[in-house]
Design a protein around this nucleic acid. Structure first.
Lengths: 201, 201, 201, 201
DNA sequence: GTTTAAACGAGACGGTACGTCACGTCTTGTC
DNA sequence: GACAAGACGTGACGTACCGTCTCGTTTAAAC
């Protein structure tokens, strides 16, 4: 399922030249490339336009600000599949954690998220982020918890927001604050095991 | 214990007018005020100077970059006491979590941390951050774990980095990514209880 | 005599939908309106199209550049009649001056001429302007001078270019450089009287 | 006498780094060079900054708009000396006309005036132009007429504005509208002779 | 009639310049 | 030599306009 694909009012489709998909794609992939190469701080709208072979106006026709564009590029196309039924809470938590870790440690996301957080005084981007990225992940967490309750692994369903924070948070901190050397992926199973223990207690 | 107070080499004290403490204080409190008012994104060095009633040069005489200044202002004076022996792992984890939550949710820190993370490609600030904020918190986590091992609550000492991530992460995510409404402080006991269960398992 | 009516090759009339006269008229009158409202500097092709209720392409199908369009709108339909034989050099000079003043002080022309002059590095517009506006006026000046010589009012025929400059110039300066308050029309008789005296001397 | 040297509020001179004369001079001469090379239409603020080896901000600190800058550069330093007493109205008119022709046909002025006229909807530039360029020339015309009256060459003093238009206008038209080939300078004596005849009649 | 070809309103396109703003440095005169 | 003030070069921002190019539709002439 594609999470996100554009921010500004789509063309009213009432006559006029239609937007070119080629341009949409070029913007997003140029943004991702430059995010990987120089991070959020080193990313310029002009450079994105140049790399994409388009004009700046074509970008601002689609995104109100640079932040919107980066957000779209970093989160767009994150294919957040729903968690499969793996038979046990712990296995599903591990699956969730791995997906979160994989998502956050993708090269474009890694370059963008810090910067996005910085400019988050901009309420529009904040709420868009919540409506897409956060809401979708939350739904997955809820689904896993509901299944665990149905299986009898949990007697009462814990607050999904708390569990979400417990899964997402450590991965986030590991990547963006603590910046421990080594792969995050190895961290996921440990985290999932601990979370399962915490919930079962 | 005061964590941080300045970044650049103090004046060599070889004649000339000494730096005025008044200026140091004015910079830091102006920075904190503006951080609260407009967040990191809306903070400019010029505005800090104007608010403090000083010149920009006085700032750059003390901090090499805007990031250093914000970091000093947001973290300076965070009095990170060592965790007292409270008799049980769970009580001490709760104490740690509450201190972390209190630290991160302070108004200036809340405004600054996201932005600081954004500009963290700058290695100087990254390493300074790690050497002070992270290292000190990590030491506290280690101390708590060591005491729990000594008490026999834990058979083997878990990796302090992992535990650190499990405590800091959810608080961080709660505040900066999920931005759930309501106080973080109420979140701390729940988190500590879960962490204790996870570690004991 | 109509001076000017279009610049680009008319449709070859080889099938296809014919151009609509309605559109021609709408472009010209929208241009004139906007010229009056905001002058040349404030006029955009997009605004002309919007005001005329047409598309930009319909404009560029008729005029190669914005300058061509403005020129057509400001000069089109200037009905430059030939000067009647009024019996005396002075009377005919006065007639010429009044026609020039009336032409230049028309609302659309007043808004356009300065701007047109500005973009006159474009040689196409320059030569078109010379071939129409200037050439026609020059012919009228020549005719008046020839008649004066025939009448014996002048012993030798002065250079028509000089006389043209002496009539057109002051009106032009009055309107576009000096911008004296008050009507230009009252200025015409004085100017004509002086010109007559100068030529007779 | 220097006509013009800056437009925006000079620095209050109450502390702070003073403006560098080097920058003022570099802006003006770069503007003149580019005016000569490409005319008003081909002149960009960025190019002026680059040629001058300065930043755009240094330009906008001095001039509110591109037009102000061009005006300053084209008219700045026009050393409009007062007309000397040459003994006769005709000689002094010739002197005036020559000065006007020399001024308008200078390379920078020639490149700028058309464009300036175009953007003249901007009232600030218009009034500045009147207050400096026009007012000064007008004063010279008045002085010449007053002396002619004192000498008894004229019985009543004609309207200076009209005479100004009669001298400036033809030169202006010659250069910017008619664009006759050949030097304007040769035109000045003829014009002055005619003007003298017109006034004496 | 059908076909064909161009004009139509709308608006997206690449490009270029605008004027603004912030950074971190430098330069005054004063303390 | 630190201070307040503020100008400096650099370079990104988001806006506006140019002249071109697609869309899907409409309209008249050619067949």
């Amino acid at each position: 399922m594609v999470l996100y694909s554009g921010t500004m009012s789509a063309p009213t489709a009432r006559g006029g030249r239609p937007r070119e998909e080629r341009v949409d794609a070029a913007i997003l992939s140029a943004t991702r490339e430059l995010l990987v190469e120089g991070g959020y701080a080193g990313l310029t709208v002009g450079a994105v336009a140049a790399r994409a072979g388009i004009g700046k106006a074509a970008i601002y026709r689609r995104y109100e600000t640079k932040q919107e564009m980066v957000f779209a590029a970093a989160v767009h196309g994150l294919d957040l599949e729903s968690p499969p039924d793996l038979g046990s809470l712990r296995a599903e938590l591990e699956w969730l954690t791995e997906v979160i870790a994989a998502t956050l440690s993708g090269p474009a996301v890694a370059g963008a998220l810090g910067g996005l957080l910085a400019d988050m005084s901009d309420d529009a981007v904040v709420s868009r982020m919540r409506e897409t990225f956060v809401a979708h992940q939350r739904a997955n967490v809820t689904a896993v918890l509901d299944r665990a309750v149905a299986r009898g692994e949990l007697t009462s369903r814990p607050d999904a927001a708390v569990v979400h924070a417990m899964l997402l948070g450590p991965v986030f901190a590991w990547l963006f604050v603590l910046r421990e050397p080594g792969d995050v992926r190895g961290f996921a199973p440990t985290l999932a095991r601990m979370a399962a223990a915490a919930l079962s207690a």
